[in-house]
């Protein structure tokens, strides 16, 4: 502190407490609603203190939204995307930094431009590719006049690889990451040249160098990034909504929205809020437990 100003400090504390209480209010009220029987949860105004029905409501929400399966799906998806993004990014960054590449600019810009193509801007065609991954192959074959038979087969519904309603469809299309690639590029660039020189002298193979030198060096970056990406992936909504039409692959976030008040029935806010709490608990816990790594990952991602 530059100077002592007890009054100012007190104000700061008060303001912080007020602001953070406001920030926590929505979740607190969700908790309250989730702990009340339906009649009380529907009362206006809602009581401000929780009741004793939390477990019952959590159980009911768990069953109605089939959250057991949904949470498992979300975990697989989030871990898969995070791991996939990191793996692809590490490999790409390694190639970009440690090799003399002809056409490197092409790879670099290709990856960079993907920043400009979030799924929302290519929503329908991406869906089509996921519905049949071979669509581009057929189309290219048709254009190039290579194998008209192949193109005809495509049009006639020949071979197909559909990723709809599968973990592959949830994960793979989201595994490209320009920001992660650039992050690892920065990390690798800061690794001392001497290490590489020594490795070359020892006749170290590139794969061994990546595995034994670079990965251990970037361990904390990987962990931090994994946490950020896990949270980001868990919270995806539009993409799972599109590629999943079979409730067996619903993610937790989508499952919660299925419990939102709707045309079908009178609202059961207590169960909806219980489901919301369950679906947000995993990423929130991850952030709380790995706070330091999370903050580091968040900030690094944008270097």
């Amino acid at each position: 502190m530059v100077e002592r100003a007890p009054l100012l400090d007190l104000c700061a504390h008060l303001l912080l407490i007020l602001a953070l209480a406001a920030l926590c209010l929505p979740v607190w009220l969700a908790l309250v609603a989730a702990s009340l029987p339906l009649e009380e949860a529907a009362r206006v105004p809602l009581p401000l203190l929780p009741g004793d029905r939390l477990l019952e409501n959590l159980a009911a929400a768990w069953q109605r939204a089939e959250l057991g399966r949904a949470l498992l799906n979300s975990t697989v998806m989030a871990a898969g995307i995070a791991a996939g993004k990191i793996a692809l990014a590490v490999l790409s960054a390694f190639a970009l930094v440690y090799f003399r590449l002809r056409l490197r600019w092409l790879a670099f810009w290709g990856i960079f431009i993907s920043l400009m193509l979030p799924v929302e801007v290519r929503i329908v065609p991406t869906y089509e590719v996921v519905a049949n991954v071979l669509v581009p192959v057929y189309a290219l074959a048709g254009w190039l006049g290579l194998g008209p038979a192949l193109a005809a087969e495509g049009a006639g519904g020949g071979a197909k690889v559909s990723l709809l309603n599968s973990y592959g469809g949830l994960i793979v299309p989201l595994t490209a990451s320009a920001t992660a690639t650039f992050l690892f590029r920065q990390v690798f660039l800061s690794v001392p040249e001497e290490l590489t020189e020594a490795a070359l002298v020892d006749g170290c193979r590139p794969s061994a160098f990546l595995w034994l030198v670079l990965l251990p060096l970037s361990r904390t970056n990987i962990a931090a990034l994994f946490i950020v990406l896990f949270v980001w992936s868990w919270n995806q909504y539009l993409w799972p909504l599109l590629v999943v039409t079979d409730p067996a692959y619903d993610t937790a976030v989508v499952a919660v929205t299925r419990l939102m008040p709707s045309m079908d029935a009178l609202p059961r806010w207590n169960e909806t809020m219980a489901a919301a709490l369950l679906a947000m608990a995993p990423p929130v816990l991850v952030v709380l437990v790995f706070q330091r790594a999370f903050v580091q990952g968040l900030i690094e991602q944008d270097r």
């Binding site: 790879a107 990856i111 993907s114 193509l117 991406t126 089509e128 590719v129 996921v130 991954v133 490209a176």
Partner: peptide
């Protein structure tokens, strides 16, 4: 070849799920 091999997974995902759909759009 090796670097292109390393880049291949990311470029493949980009081609299939980013560039192709963007072009299609």
């Amino acid at each position: 070849l090796l670097p292109w091999f390393l880049l291949a997974p990311q470029l493949l995902v980009l081609l299939l799920f980013f560039f192709w759909p963007a072009g299609q759009a």
